[in-house]
Amino acid sequence: MVKAKGTTTQAYKLWMALTGLFLCVFLVIHVLGNLQLFLPAEEARIQFNWYSQLLSNNIIIKVISYVLYLSIIAHVIYAIILSLKKQKANGVKYAYDQRGAVSPWYSRNMGVLGTIIFLFLIVHLKDFWYQYKFTELPLDAQGQKDLYTIVISAYQELWYVILYEVGLLALGFHLLHGFFSAIRTLGLYHPKYVKLAKWVAWAYTLVITLGFMAMPIYVYLSN
């Protein structure tokens, strides 16, 4: 039997799917956390800062967060590897290419969407995660780091809100194909459940994306 050099594309795809789905689970936690920002201001401040502290101190959550960092890195690295393999597989480009007519644009541009998300993630992490973890922040009435104020003040800038909306829109389309594609890659093949999975993928994407997108706008408008 011929052995392909190194890991098979099938195996890479499986890791893409597993890391991607794990990140999808994380997004649910994240969007739930964000919901606290919709509470009345003072209540939101206490609740949100308490939640942030909980996440950064709990040992289990700490372990999970390392898995999360690893997943993001692995997802990106595998994406790069697959993308390079794909370029090699494609060889000479078509002089006239209309292949796009038969598949949704976002499914063909997961790499572009992923890159936008990645850049967005750098900004996002720098402005919140990094500040919370590695800088001195003022404390709130309970003596917890006051991330709430950082978040609220960040979304006072219109350009910043727009930046977020664009990043989240990219995330939305990435999820729309990614969630479903991951399930396909794992091997769900029964037509009945595939239909269900398609429906869940849509519902999941809508809830997560709108959930995220609503927050910056809400904060911008309500302050």
Binding site: M1, K13, K86, A89, S103, S107, R108, T185
Partner: peptide, 21 residues
């Protein structure tokens, strides 16, 4: 399935990203 996947890769075909085209 194992042998065919190995061969598919050895021939230089790319991966499936489920665009369904």
């Amino acid at each position: 399935v194992d042998a065919m996947v190995q061969q598919m890769d050895a021939e230089g075909f790319g991966h499936c990203s489920n665009t369904e085209a």
